[in-house]
Design a protein around this nucleic acid. Structure first.
Lengths: 150, 150
DNA sequence: TCTATCTAGATGCATTTGCATCTATCGTCA
DNA sequence: TGACGATAGATGCAAATGCATCTAGATAGA
């Protein structure tokens, strides 16, 4: 019974894919124009900033972001090379490490947010009312995988 | 006044980005699991199928899809190598060409749609009612760039 | 008509991604 | 303790992408 999608489903899908790509591209362009790193870097820095001094294990980053394991691995290598994060040996697991954001990393994240936040405000905040934004969030929330009971 | 995004805007943005990436990945995985080409190929084949026998110029594909010009160029080269499209010299513009979908291309598109359509049905059609899907489409439509009056 | 500018499309090179696999360590169970 | 499967993370290689630039043909203006 779910073999062929209904026209409303096709339309919603098409718009979701198209709009999200467009907006993402816009946000990326704004960062690039300001000479800042890409959103992938932002995502990682954001998670690490939220995690605080304790830092995070790479596999935790893999879970929280939607990046593949090998992508996280290489992303962290670049972030470390730029001095935005530091890797610490972790005591109780010889395989692992803990990644912590540095002062420079926090500073970079702040500068990125100034641009990124402005993009979000302009691309989304300025186009829908708060009620509409909430309605959108609810609808999108229902599409999450795995489905979440809320 | 659009410097800092409101919490509802941030939430809607985050969900939009996350959900769209997740669903896209799911749909791509389904195609891959069936041994079919990626959605990028589908998008091009879809546009060409809609265009009919007249075909499309590559720059028209660049406009309609969200791919960069050089990506369209290389995508078409691969599609042609696979015999899914054919390039025809166009009479009135020596720089250009017309790209037309072949029978094999139509057949591939059909097989991809069997899988892709099922993904759409399962990922969005089965999760929201038609009214909700329409509401989602309307909200997303308001986020399009450039803005469209409808 | 000659030249400068623009547009269509391709491509060389560097970076990034995907895939598969590798190494090292951990945990479990005999 | 020793062997085996599972987990953390890295990496070699191939494919895809981004960026800049190139070539060929079109267009406009003197």
């Amino acid at each position: 019974m779910t073999g062929i999608p209904s026209p409303p489903a096709i339309k919603a899908w098409a718009r979701l894919m198209r709009v999200s790509r467009q907006l993402l591209e816009r946000a990326e362009d704004a960062l690039k124009d300001s000479g800042l790193p890409s959103l992938a870097w932002y995502d990682v820095l954001h998670e690490l900033a939220e995690a605080g001094e304790g830092g995070l294990r790479p596999f935790q980053l893999t879970e929280r972001t939607l990046f593949a394991q090998y992508n996280v691995s290489r992303l962290l290598a670049r972030l470390e090379a730029d001095g935005l994060v530091e890797k610490l040996r972790v005591a109780d697991d010889g395989r692992g490490q803990t990644v912590r954001i540095t002062g420079k990393g926090r500073e970079t994240r702040r500068r990125m947010w100034a641009v990124y936040g402005r993009s979000i405000a302009g691309l989304v905040g300025a186009r829908l009312s708060n009620d509409e934004l909430d309605a959108l969030s609810v609808l999108l929330g229902r599409l999450r995988h795995p489905a979440v009971m809320e």
